[in-house]
C-alpha cells in the first residue's frame, strides 16, 4: 500500500476544504484508506486555512514538519506558513504567476489560476483549476480522470458540478 502525505493551503473562502474532500473521495474510489484534517470555524472567515491528508493507513491526519510529499497552494502568499511541512524533495503546485523571491525547497509548478478563473467566468473554482493543473502531472497522486470521477460522485447542484468540471479540465490543459 502506498503512503502519501498531502497539504492543501489557502485563504478562507477559496475552497481549500472542498478540495480536501475531493481528494478524500478520490482515495476512497481508489480503495485507499485515508485520514484528513481541515480547519473550521473562525479560520474560515478569510483567515489562513490548511488541510492535511494522509493516504495509506495512518492513525492521525496531522503531518509533521518535513514530511509532506505534495503541497497544493491556492494562495501563493500562504507559502511561508506551510513550506516547513514539505519534504526537501517535495512537490509544489501553486496558484501564482511567478516563483517566490526566496526560492525555497521542492520542485515547484505554477498556474495563474486566479487570472484564469476571472477570464473564464469561474470565479469560485480557483481550487479546481489548481487541482486539474496538478493532476495533469504524473507525480501527482491522482489523475484528472480520477478527480473527475470523484467530482461526479460528490453531491452538488448540476450547474456547480459543471463549472467545477470545466475548471478541472481548464487547469489540466495548462498542466499538460
Amino acid at each position: 500500500m502506498r503512503k502519501v502525505k498531502i497539504i492543501i493551503a489557502g485563504v478562507g473562502g477559496q475552497g481549500v476544504v472542498f478540495l480536501s474532500r475531493l481528494l478524500a473521495e478520490a482515495a476512497v474510489q481508489a480503495g485507499e484508506p485515508l485520514i484528513s484534517y481541515e480547519s473550521h470555524g473562525m479560520a474560515m472567515r478569510g483567515g489562513s486555512v490548511s488541510c492535511h491528508l494522509k493516504i495509506g493507513g495512518f492513525q492521525s491526519p496531522l503531518i509533521a514538519a518535513g514530511e509532506a510529499d505534495v503541497l497544493l497552494l491556492l494562495a501563493a502568499e500562504e507559502l511561508p506558513h506551510v513550506q516547513h511541512l514539505l519534504k526537501d524533495d517535495g512537490r509544489l503546485f501553486v496558484n501564482g504567476e511567478e516563483a517566490g523571491k526566496d526560492g525555497g525547497k521542492g520542485q515547484i509548478s505554477l498556474v495563474p489560476a486566479s487570472a484564469m478563473a476571472l477570464e473564464h467566468n469561474l470565479p469560485r473554482a480557483v481550487n479546481l483549476i489548481v487541482a486539474g493543473f496538478a493532476a495533469a502531472h504524473s507525480d501527482f497522486p491522482y489523475s484528472v480522470d480520477q478527480l473527475r470521477a470523484a467530482l461526479e460522485k460528490m453531491p452538488a447542484k448540476e450547474t456547480i458540478r459543471a463549472a467545477n468540471i470545466a475548471a478541472l479540465e481548464l487547469g489540466c490543459q495548462v498542466g499538460l
Binding site: 514538519a65 502568499e77 500562504e78 511561508p80 516547513h84
Partner: peptide, 17 residues
C-alpha cells in the same frame, strides 16, 4: 532535525466576510 516554521510571518488573521 526538522524544518522550522517561518517565524517572521504571521498567519492571515480571520476577518469579517
Amino acid at each position: 532535525a526538522r524544518p522550522e516554521k517561518a517565524t517572521n510571518v504571521r498567519p492571515r488573521r480571520p476577518r469579517l466576510c
